[in-house]
Simulated assay, not measured.
Amino acid sequence: MRKRVLYILILWLFADVYFFTAVSTLTANPAWHWAYWLVDILIVAGVVFTIFGRKRGAAPRAMSWVMALMLLSAVPKILGTPVLLIEDVVRAFSGFPPRSIWVSELALIVAVIPFLGLLFGLTRGRHHYTVHRHTLYFPDLPEAFDGFTLTQLSDIHAGSFTSEKGVNKGIDLVNAQHSDVILFTGDLVNNKASEMHPWISAFSRLQARLGKYSVLGNHDYGDYTQWDNKALKAANLISLKNVHKQIGFRLLLDEAVTITKEGQTITLIGVENWGKGGFHKYGDLEKAAANVPDDQFKILMSHDPSHWEAKTLNHLKHIHLTLSGHTHGAQFGIELFGFKWSPIKYVYKQWAGLYKQKDRYLYVNRGFGFLGLKGRVGIWPEITVLTLRKSQEPRNKS
């Protein structure tokens, strides 16, 4: 983590120095020059404090603000710097004459555009909910479930919420989908069950005709905060499980339930968190699916998408659809005209949206809430609506 931040700081420093040449070309006023560097010095000091002060209890809210200010300062300069680099290539063949004013103005304009986008994301993006709709076709879907709709939510992170109006906006949008079921794929809180207490009545308003189901995510176990003793941590998890019940969620803990419609059934499987690398592997897919018939249509809820390639794809029982979250799409990236990018793609192969292998689907929800960064830039909070349809085409063997 610290090494990655160091690389980012080096890139930022390079862009900072380079972009300053445009600022100094446009104004010789030393007050502007001092202000330019003072802002960056304060942000860097904040970054250093949050990295090395975390073990000493640096406030999460302070970390969030520092991250936001760092993005506002670094990203526009990094994107504006190529304009200056191109000019310098031309200047190199002319004996490096003074930098052109109009090129410096162009670099400033290029930097202003992402700055405004970042500003929107950091102030409004956290509740800029987007509905992603997909229709999935399965040849062995029971006839009664042709047209069956599910709404997936993930990564609520109630401990980050500050706006009742913003949260209710998202809940109203979920209910407006009128789905058959609502499926929540983990991370109800940041660390403690108490974070959800102010929001129980709001999320209790979620409605679905055939039920609401949930699983736990990596943050739900209280692994990322200090507890005076193990008993308190265990009590917190018990309390969190009770919160799921108060909201109206049926929490699935390495178990399966049957959903019945017009005399036909599909099976919903829910596992505890299972993540790659240093994330805990609490989940037990073998246990959860043990009593599920092989020919049953199956939907798996598993918080971490790395579980899909590691365990689910090659599972002996054909799991038709897996629903995950966890990545948040890094809460930062670009999604325009079919193009999708976020730095999280270098960590998770499947990080947002729909994926398909071996006639098995994975959907990775971008998250309803936010964590760390107090906002979302380009990767908006998501409400997923999936419609299941019975396809007449036989499934390809692989």
Rank of each mutant, 00 (worst) to 15 (best):
289 A>Y: 01
289 A>P: 00
290 A>W: 00
290 A>Y: 06
290 A>K: 15
290 A>T: 12
291 N>S: 15
291 N>D: 14
291 N>K: 13
291 N>E: 14
292 V>D: 07
292 V>F: 08
292 V>E: 04
293 P>Q: 09
293 P>W: 10
293 P>M: 11
293 P>Y: 06
294 D>S: 13
294 D>F: 08
294 D>T: 12
295 D>V: 00
295 D>P: 00
295 D>W: 06
296 Q>I: 02
297 F>N: 02
297 F>M: 06
297 F>L: 03
297 F>K: 07
297 F>A: 05
298 K>G: 03
298 K>A: 05
299 I>L: 06
299 I>D: 05
299 I>A: 03
300 L>R: 01
300 L>Q: 03
301 M>L: 15
302 S>P: 00
302 S>V: 08
303 H>C: 01
303 H>S: 02
304 D>S: 02
304 D>V: 05
305 P>N: 08
305 P>D: 06
305 P>W: 11
306 S>D: 14
306 S>A: 13
307 H>I: 01
307 H>L: 00
308 W>V: 06
309 E>K: 14
309 E>M: 08
311 K>I: 01
311 K>V: 03
311 K>Y: 13
313 L>Q: 11
314 N>I: 02
314 N>P: 00
314 N>E: 13
315 H>D: 08
315 H>A: 06
315 H>K: 01
316 L>S: 14
316 L>I: 00
316 L>E: 14
316 L>W: 02
316 L>R: 14
316 L>G: 15
317 K>F: 04
317 K>H: 11
317 K>R: 15
318 H>P: 02
318 H>Q: 11
318 H>W: 02
318 H>C: 05
319 I>H: 03
319 I>L: 07
319 I>Y: 07
320 H>F: 07
320 H>M: 04
321 L>P: 07
321 L>V: 10
321 L>W: 13
322 T>V: 05
322 T>C: 03
323 L>C: 07
323 L>T: 04
323 L>N: 05
324 S>E: 10
324 S>V: 04
324 S>L: 04
324 S>D: 03
325 G>P: 05
325 G>F: 08
326 H>C: 01
326 H>F: 10
326 H>S: 03
327 T>P: 05
327 T>H: 08
328 H>I: 08
328 H>Q: 07
328 H>E: 10
328 H>Y: 11
328 H>V: 09
329 G>P: 11
329 G>H: 09
329 G>D: 09
330 A>H: 14
331 Q>A: 09
331 Q>P: 10
332 F>Q: 13
332 F>C: 05
332 F>S: 09
334 I>N: 01
335 E>R: 15
335 E>L: 07
335 E>D: 13
336 L>F: 15
336 L>W: 15
336 L>S: 06
336 L>T: 12
336 L>K: 14
337 F>G: 00
337 F>P: 00
338 G>P: 09
338 G>E: 11
338 G>S: 08
338 G>K: 07
338 G>T: 11
339 F>N: 03
339 F>V: 12
339 F>S: 04
339 F>W: 14
340 K>P: 00
340 K>A: 07
340 K>I: 07
340 K>V: 08
341 W>R: 07
341 W>Q: 08
341 W>N: 07
342 S>V: 12
342 S>D: 12
342 S>L: 08
343 P>V: 05
343 P>D: 10
343 P>I: 04
343 P>H: 13
344 I>K: 04
345 K>Y: 03
345 K>L: 01
346 Y>P: 01
346 Y>N: 14
346 Y>H: 15
346 Y>L: 05
346 Y>M: 03
347 V>Y: 12
347 V>K: 13
